[in-house]
Nucleic acid binder design. Sequence first.
DNA 1: GTTAGGCATGGCATCGGTAACATACGCTCG
DNA 2: CGAGCGTATGTTACCGATGCCATGCCTAAC
Lengths: 339, 339
Amino acid sequence: MTEGAARLRQPSMADVARTAGVSAQTVSRALRGSPNVNPETKRRVLAAVEQVGYRFNSAARALSSGRSHTIGLVLLASGGYYSRSAVTAGVEAAAGEAGYAVNIATIAALDTGLMERALSKLADQGVDGFVIAVPLISVTRKMEEITHDIPTVTLDGSRTADARVLGIDQQEAGRVATQHLLDLGHRQVWHISGPDEWIEARQRRQGWQECLAAAGIEAPPVLEGDWSPDSGHRQGQIIAMIPEVTAVFVASDEMAFGVIRALRERGRSVPEDVSIVSVDDIALAAYCAPPLTTVRQDFYRYGAAAVELLLRGDDAEVDASVATASLSVRASTAAPRSL
Amino acid sequence: MTEGAARLRQPSMADVARTAGVSAQTVSRALRGSPNVNPETKRRVLAAVEQVGYRFNSAARALSSGRSHTIGLVLLASGGYYSRSAVTAGVEAAAGEAGYAVNIATIAALDTGLMERALSKLADQGVDGFVIAVPLISVTRKMEEITHDIPTVTLDGSRTADARVLGIDQQEAGRVATQHLLDLGHRQVWHISGPDEWIEARQRRQGWQECLAAAGIEAPPVLEGDWSPDSGHRQGQIIAMIPEVTAVFVASDEMAFGVIRALRERGRSVPEDVSIVSVDDIALAAYCAPPLTTVRQDFYRYGAAAVELLLRGDDAEVDASVATASLSVRASTAAPRSL
DNA sequence: GTTAGGCATGGCATCGGTAACATACGCTCG
DNA sequence: CGAGCGTATGTTACCGATGCCATGCCTAAC
């Protein structure tokens, strides 16, 4: 009577085993590609899997093996839309490649409490590793504990005692951008940086400073934005009031959009009066007016590299491949008028 | 001798129970906020949790309860960086609020095979529900099966037999944008749409058509882009060659950047010669040159609403709140010259 | 011809929670 | 004053895969 009753339960390994005429253990071995399985048996198992519509139960696997095959990704909700998307895609692709799933946690602001909560949440979920794409403004005991227990890679250069750092050379980006302006003949280069909490921002600033120092130029004061176009606009208004400025290195494309708008509103044209270089090379950079000269960042690759570093651990190789900084020269830079 | 040996195992509920002097079951109840627990007992349990450093094991919970408290989010790797980020943040926030984690799967292109694989992967991970932020170009048997077993909400209007649809009124967006141009005195409005696979794109196009029809205007041919600024630029070059065009409704801000660039390259100024309205209101829209008049989309809210619909299921209310379309009027639109 | 060792496979305990049922106690109500 | 019920807690089996050990078989070596 009840033989046609609804299937309430997903088929398990035991069902597959029964159908294939082997033990559950053998099914497990066959599916994981264990070496000591007869090819014929394996074929039968795979056929049975197909037949009963077996779907892997990752919770059971996680419980029994102690590893969840999941990595946790920590992001900041605001700022840098493009970079966030691209990093996420890169992480997910590389993780998927290695059979890992990706769990995300977004923090609304750079706040220690929120950060702790995000890490805790992911740790509770049982992630096998962390990719942290957000600066650790201050590392608490709790964060140390969590990142001590669970392998961690940070993307922006933040450190804990145990976290590994994916070495992206942001200083190089700052140097390349600044040098480009000097090469065009500018005698001074101003800088609108990202928020000081971000090591990325600090490194780009350092690259700029170093480059100026190497050229024997004393660096002007730094203006600080928050990555948003609005903040770029605000700082740009200040820049526009200083007649001697002919070149500005802006720490992100999004801010550069705001800076350029502010300059134009004050009657200073780009690049004729002021040259602008920024960093990121987002999809819209080529469609700014004028098109932005900017240092390309391959966020997708950074994300993927972070996962590789996390899972494989051969840092040296990854570091090298990620460190290159290349400039997309477009129309927001030119030689200064005086030349 | 070995009493100081390393703790290999994370403390479990049993450890908490022992410390608190109760049974494991009581610990479980206390932690989940079951009503029938003595407040004093609960206090003891919480103290014990703190003391032994207990961390919840979600794999065990998932295995035993059959629910993983995880939802799967499907995204497309290319196109619409802003919207992707914002939707993700919204989904994650609403999910976190409800005690759910978020697992992501990114598909590299709109391809049935990739889509199936993404759903399978998330299903294997044991997600309790799906939020699909990508159009289902064609729904296969396998997709039907998976979305039949696991509750699903689609964001762009795609349907399967069982998926629920978050009703975002994209037609309204198209109408509002088009009407704005007509109200300014334009006699004709052209349209650069998104890819035809996206229901979003089709709905915006329909809204545009309807609005024109209501005004007794015969719609001109549609030009189709792929959401990217590059595609906007290509279609914009075509538009620029047609002298009679005075107003264009572009289906996304990112494309609008490209369109405006193309028009200017051909000597047609915006908004004097051609008015442009688009959709999305991304952060950079206000920093386009000229600033974009655009229909705001609250992607964060869409993401959050999708999760609420998924978890709670009271669709009516959610639908209504999400349906509003508001126009951000900036400087890319003006009355036509002839007026 | 016996034994050692490799291979393919099966049996059983286990991971850490939760559902379902059982129990003990105190209180209300007829 | 005992039946009956609600509350707080304990007991037990179980979710589905995997680790470990045991088993049987076959080949190679002495």
